[in-house]
């Protein structure tokens, strides 16, 4: 834990445990995510990664433990004390989902507009100014559309801005979901298997997008990922979980050579273990 004092952690998870009835999904887990870095959370299926995410993003109330978010301006927020929407609104933690959760019947642009809800609510004077069409509202709306346009450009979907999100190809939907999360202007972006179901080319462009988010927006990223090529390529720090506990952490290279990690993957799924081992060679 001494590293905690030296490193600048935006998120510090301390002794987090989550039980569902008699099942312990996460057991006394502690790790940190560094500011303006990409931290990957990996592990075999059923290791409890998504549960950790759900605790961090307020969908589950952890059984015990604390999660502290340290903002750039120095003020700290205990995430376990906030519930559902406040995590995104006040703590500025945004997330995506393992099985994409866009608003399929709304256009790509509308999806990005919905993400700016809280900012736009203020600008519309809780709807009243917007209803009468006040100039200040018009300006804010225009700015919101511009922000959405910028993000659509960055994910290469500008030409499909007016298409229903549900009609977009799978890879585009993944990127749109990330853009939507970014439109909430988060301090910490949590991505749940962003590369799942993507082909090699799409994975590469995803890596590029995430690196550019870290570089340009300075957003810290925490991601769960099975695609080891993505993990090895972009993460600064890797945390490995198995059966609800942390079994290793460190740089990608360090983790890759750790026998416990290889054992965990071998025990769980041969293919994944081979993927871990081969990804470095």
């Amino acid at each position: 834990m001494s590293a905690d004092q030296i490193l600048d952690h935006i998120l510090s998870v301390d002794h987090l445990s989550m039980r569902f009835g008699g099942i312990v999904a996460v057991n006394d887990l502690s790790f940190g995510a560094e500011r303006r870095k990409i931290t990957a959370l990996i592990g075999p299926n059923g290791a409890g990664k998504t549960t950790v995410f759900n605790c961090i993003t307020g969908f589950y109330k952890p059984t015990s433990g604390s999660m502290r978010l340290a903002h750039d301006d120095g003020h700290n927020i205990q995430l376990e004390r906030l519930n559902d929407f406040r995590i995104s609104k006040q703590a500025k933690v945004a997330r995506t989902f393992q099985n994409i959760r866009l608003f399929p019947g709304m256009t790509a642009l509308e999806n990005l507009m919905v993400a700016q809800h809280n900012a736009l609510m203020r600008a519309s004077g809780l709807t009243l100014l917007g209803l009468i069409g006040a100039p200040s509202w018009r300006v804010a709306e225009k700015a919101a559309i511009d922000l959405a346009r910028t993000w659509l450009e960055r994910i290469d979907l500008l030409d499909r801005a007016d298409d229903a999100a549900g009609n977009l190809p799978y890879g585009d939907q993944r990127r749109l979901e990330i853009a939507r999360a970014m439109c909430t202007e988060p301090a910490l972006l949590c991505l749940d298997e962003p590369a799942a179901g993507l082909n090699a080319r799409e994975s590469a462009s995803l890596s590029e997008l995430l690196l550019s988010i870290r570089a340009n927006q300075g957003t810290s990223i925490l991601l769960i990922e099975h695609d080891m090529s993505v993990v090895m390529e972009i993460s600064d720090h890797v945390v490995v979980m198995d059966y609800g506990v942390k079994i290793a952490e460190g740089t990608p290279q360090h983790v890759r050579d750790d026998p416990r990690v290889i054992a965990a993957y071998l025990g769980a799924d041969e293919e994944e273990a081979i993927a871990v081992m081969e990804s470095g060679t």
Partner: peptide, 28 residues
């Protein structure tokens, strides 16, 4: 008018996916 304001869009988003709304900081 309301449909074009954030509140109206939030209504429709709610219809589409409530979980996603919460993840975006919308008070459902």
């Amino acid at each position: 008018r309301l449909r074009r304001l954030p509140i109206g869009r939030a209504w429709e988003a709610l219809r589409e996916d409530e979980v996603a709304c919460r993840a975006l900081g919308i008070n459902t």
